[in-house]
């Protein structure tokens, strides 16, 4: 098991090289560079431009730029953001927390609702409540996140829900006491969290339902019932535990998308997270910021997948990795 994990981790290195070089050369395809905008300003002389280009290695051929970026990365320096005039690592760190706050909160909401709802649907299969929930699940899966965001914003504004629209904090946030800050933040999170958790909730409860239905048809459940165990015990102690197992893989995938998955929602809801940062970075040809985001996103994805595999092996003794 440990050897398997170590091998998978070692294997991440060539993968990251591949990902970063791919994204670097994609960015090179665009006409101009991060300083093109600056060159248009009449205040900036030719000499300054030359000096700037030399400082940020933009006068070098692309493969040299990439090579230098890798060398710097190994020293722990992710490069300089042209848009923010700050180190990339600093810029990303500012946003990572915001994104995590949103995605983790919506994962918690989705999972804590999906499991009980899924169990209810399976136990009361084809009842009116199951049918209603199935109906909502199909809607939840099919509605694009960003469109749901727009709809909620519209309802919020016209129906007088009074929730804040966009952003993460109110303007006078700094003057609030601690609890006021918490409440303010929570109020700002309501809409984005609803948007983000809807799709996850809908698909998770369907998975939970069909897994539990599968398990309930198995022989050991019949045996448990035959022993005279209470139905509650049969379901919660025997069936549900087995039905949750396959969901662990899904959890791993969600862990992988924990940073990049909320991008469009962040943009619609004006949430200052990684997604909106990435959009700005791409539009401003801020190479190193884009690269930094991509690499961190990819690392998260790889770690998520690995975690899924490991968790699955840990929970299911039938699975063994060489």
């Amino acid at each position: 098991m440990y050897r398997y994990i170590v091998r998978r981790l070692i294997y991440v290195i060539p993968m990251l090289l591949g990902i970063s070089s791919l994204s670097f050369f994609i960015m090179q395809l665009a006409p101009g560079d991060a300083l093109t905008q600056m060159a248009l300003s009449p205040d900036v002389t030719e000499e300054i431009m030359e000096a700037m280009r030399a400082r940020f290695w933009l006068d070098q051929p692309p493969y040299m730029q990439y090579f230098r970026w890798i060398v710097q990365l190994l020293k722990g320096d992710m490069g300089h953001s042209f848009l923010w005039h700050a180190p990339v690592a600093w810029v990303i760190r500012q946003r990572v927390f915001n994104s995590l706050l949103l995605t983790v909160a919506s994962l918690i909401v989705a999972w804590s609702l999906a499991i009980p709802i899924g169990i209810h649907s399976a136990v009361h299969q084809y009842s009116w409540s199951d049918k209603l929930l199935t109906f909502f699940a199909f809607i939840g899966v099919s509605i694009p996140n960003w469109f749901l965001g727009l709809l909620l914003l519209y309802l919020n504004l016209t129906r007088g829900w009074g929730l804040p629209i966009g952003g993460m904090t109110s303007i006078d946030f700094a003057e609030f006491t601690f609890w006021e800050k918490v409440v303010d933040l929570a109020r700002h999170m309501v809409l984005p969290v609803i948007v983000l958790s809807t799709g996850t909730l809908a698909s998770l409860m369907r998975y939970m339902r069909s897994n539990l239905l599968d398990v309930l048809r198995q022989d050991f459940v019949t045996t448990a019932r035959a022993k005279g165990l209470a139905e509650r015990v049969v379901i919660y102690k025997h069936a549900v535990r087995n039905a949750i197992n396959p969901l662990i893989t899904i959890f791993g995938f969600q862990l992988g998308g924990i940073l990049g998955g909320a991008s469009l929602t962040e943009i619609v809801m004006n949430w200052p997270g990684i997604g909106s940062l990435m959009l700005n970075a791409v539009q401003g040809q801020d190479y190193y910021l884009v690269m930094g985001n991509l690499v961190i996103g990819a690392v998260m994805l790889i770690i998520g997948n690995l975690t899924a595999d490991v968790l699955l092996a840990a929970s299911d003794p039938r699975i063994r990795y060489e």
């Binding site: 993968m15 591949g18 990902i19 791919l22 994204s23 994609i26 960015m27 395809l29 665009a30 998308g257 940073l259 990049g260 998955g261 991008s263 469009l264 997604g275 990435m278 959009l279 791409v282 539009q283 040809q285 884009v290 985001n293 991509l294 996103g297 990819a298 998260m300 994805l301 790889i302």
Partner: peptide
């Protein structure tokens, strides 16, 4: 490698160029 890049980021980068 393609699978491991967060697809929305890759999409953004590609369409921006």
């Amino acid at each position: 490698i393609i699978i491991s890049v967060p697809s929305f980021y890759l999409l953004l980068a590609l369409s921006a160029v």
